[in-house]
Design a protein around this nucleic acid. Sequence first.
DNA 1: ACAAAAGTGTTAAGGCTACACCCATGG
DNA 2: CCATGGGTGTAGCCTTAACACTTTTGT
Lengths: 234, 234
Amino acid sequence: MNRYSKQTRLLVAIDCIIFGFDGNEMKILLVQRGMVPEKGKWSLMGGFVQPDESLEEAAARTLNELTGLGNVYMEQLHTFGMPERDPIERTVSVTYFALLDLAKYKVQLSSEFQAEWFPLKKFPRLIFDHSEMVQAARDRLKYKASLHPILFELLPEKFTIPQLQSLFEDVYQASFDKRNFNRKIISTGLLIKQSEKDRINSRKGAFFFKLDKKTYRENFHSILRMIPNPNDSI
Amino acid sequence: MNRYSKQTRLLVAIDCIIFGFDGNEMKILLVQRGMVPEKGKWSLMGGFVQPDESLEEAAARTLNELTGLGNVYMEQLHTFGMPERDPIERTVSVTYFALLDLAKYKVQLSSEFQAEWFPLKKFPRLIFDHSEMVQAARDRLKYKASLHPILFELLPEKFTIPQLQSLFEDVYQASFDKRNFNRKIISTGLLIKQSEKDRINSRKGAFFFKLDKKTYRENFHSILRMIPNPNDSI
DNA sequence: ACAAAAGTGTTAAGGCTACACCCATGG
DNA sequence: CCATGGGTGTAGCCTTAACACTTTTGT
């Protein structure tokens, strides 16, 4: 015997929830679907798992086809498998979410796809169960970012603490006291202060910081408390 | 068009990591595989996803076939999809882990399967990547139980605090100071003290507690700190 | 000199760890 | 009466939230 006979084989897809931060707000990368059904409607970037690739490879390939990027933070999110989720044919979708520094890579989007960055606060209706996938990814991101220094993956190599705070505030839709936020972030020991300042947002200028990669790797899996108590919803 | 032509369809399996606690130690339920390849070797309970069932339904069905149980805590863990993980034919496996009160249900194991409870500390070599799945489930259990009151799912309706503590100690392979453990658990507000005592383990007897189901549901998703600092590894 | 954002310090409260003794009971 | 496991209290430390003023510099 070299097949499990009598069992039904299913299509297995990958869908990627691609988050980016432009220094100001969180965005999500969507594509206009190129095939029927729902051709022309907005959806997550996805594709089918090929016979010889692992799920991680399929996810990385999918991201790369759209953005040209590799070496991006990706994490398996959840697998969606309701029988009727794709009306054409039953498809099980393994979802991954990716975090990237949007400003740096904005221009590289493949023109092969009709892709666009949308603010996470307001993006179009998506096909199938893709909105549910986005919601699950947002929930996971919030959850994980409160315990692990994952949001640094969204920032450029050099960033300022006010930038970091505005990223947290956008993710949590909350405001934080800057003194407490500062103390909390500094106490993680993850930041290395640079001598230069970013003068884009103020006359005084804000010091740049870099991530201490070694400490980052060592502490990534320990449970930290990354955010102070929020003040209010924004 | 009513099929995505040219795409390869894959077998989609469910594998269940079933944890149980017998009042003394954590166990895992394994079956002797009934089909080639690896017939007779120990493996997780699993099966293929059927055409008309969701992944959750398939997982619940798999658990029910083996134990006769329904209404058990189950959670999707991770999807494993290395191309060569099953040498017969490529199979993507969606894993779920289950938590159950072993003492209560020990007898109901279906005789259709050769199933056995093994101590989590020492269980046989498993087929394919099943050991990796168990490790991932243990890691997830530790992680999640440190933040959410998930381990109550392993206990009978009435339980004592020393029982609860020994469960935590087994999961974390650590010992906790009983005064601090007590305070921490009581402060969650999840326990309702009963008037009866359990006199099995001591002459004095330990008070039974029940879970406050309402508080449990309300607080399940908030991030608590469930365990005090461990003293030492056991 | 003033506007606009960056940066910093203190206090009071609550939560945490570490630690040692009394209680209830059956034999 | 004693052995066994169950149950509790506290002091010192650390972390946290709440809160307001000073610094820098371009215009």
